[in-house]
Amino acid sequence: MLAFIIRRIGQSILVLLIVGLVAFSMFNFVGDPIDNMLGQERTAEDIERLRIQLGLDQPFPVQYFKFLQEAVQGNFGVSYRQGRPVAEILLERAPATLELAAVSGILAIIFGIALGVFTAIRRNGVLANIVMSASLIGVSLPTFLIGILLIYVFSVELGWLPSFGRGDVVDLGWWRTGFLTESGLKALILPSITLGLYQMTLIMRLVRSEMLEVLRQDYIRFARARGLKDRAVNFRHALKNTMVPVITVIGLQLGAIIAFAIITETVFQWPGVGLLFINAIQFVDIPVMAAYLMLISVMFVGINLAVDILYFFIDPRLRADRAGGH
């Protein structure tokens, strides 16, 4: 088990290095930050001096290497636009995104699994078929459109919920949370639905198809032949087996929720890291972009590592194989 985790962490670091390299190779094409940083009355010497000062005169592998050298010491550089350390800016913005992602993720998992199980058990029911048809909307509509529709209905027409921002936040010193105020919670509703809807329908459809497959297995038939109650057969026997493949996808989707928060944050002007990233691209703020991409990769890789470890607790067959088995 420990050897497995160490091996997986090694692989994760390799993935991070490659992601960073690809990201840096692309920064050359997003534009020239110098254009934005110096005013109209710049001279060729000013440009050259700033370029050397920022290290932009060097080829990207060298830039990347320097970035890594600094990054492992916790120093992600200074934002070109704001003139403040990137780490500070990210830490300031991260709670907004993480709270949004957490709420969306939990909504997606709870409703996705519940509706998936429901539509699998009541396969021919009228309500289950309505849910299945409705889920096509969630899968096929683009996120920004859902966000705009929700704003139109609930903010513009009904006026129930705010259309942008986080509402009032409470500062806990190192974390500014929107969970503790009414306006903060209200502001969370529309963005989290927007962000979680696609993941929810995806999880639901996956749970349904996996569960239908599991319900056809001999051990389910044998469980029924032993007279176990429907609830025990469906939830104790079928759901647990259903979850093994579903967990992989949920893990990937949690990473995607954080990454795709960019679109939702833009639609709702949510002051998180996604919005920060969009603004950074417009300004070619390379340190912010680099740090953001690394942060997202770390989360992706971390979540997948957690998922792999979770397998050990769910599926006894894996435990045996790793221990040397049979």
């Binding site: 051990y219 044998f222 032949a225 032993r226 007279g227 647990k240 087996n241 006894p316 067959r317």
Partner: peptide
């Protein structure tokens, strides 16, 4: 089922729940 009538299936490899 189970109480008055028991059943044994053909394939023992697939008739036990692998996770319990």
């Amino acid at each position: 089922r189970g109480k008055e009538i028991g059943m044994v299936f053909q394939d023992p490899l697939t008739s036990l729940n692998p996770l319990l």
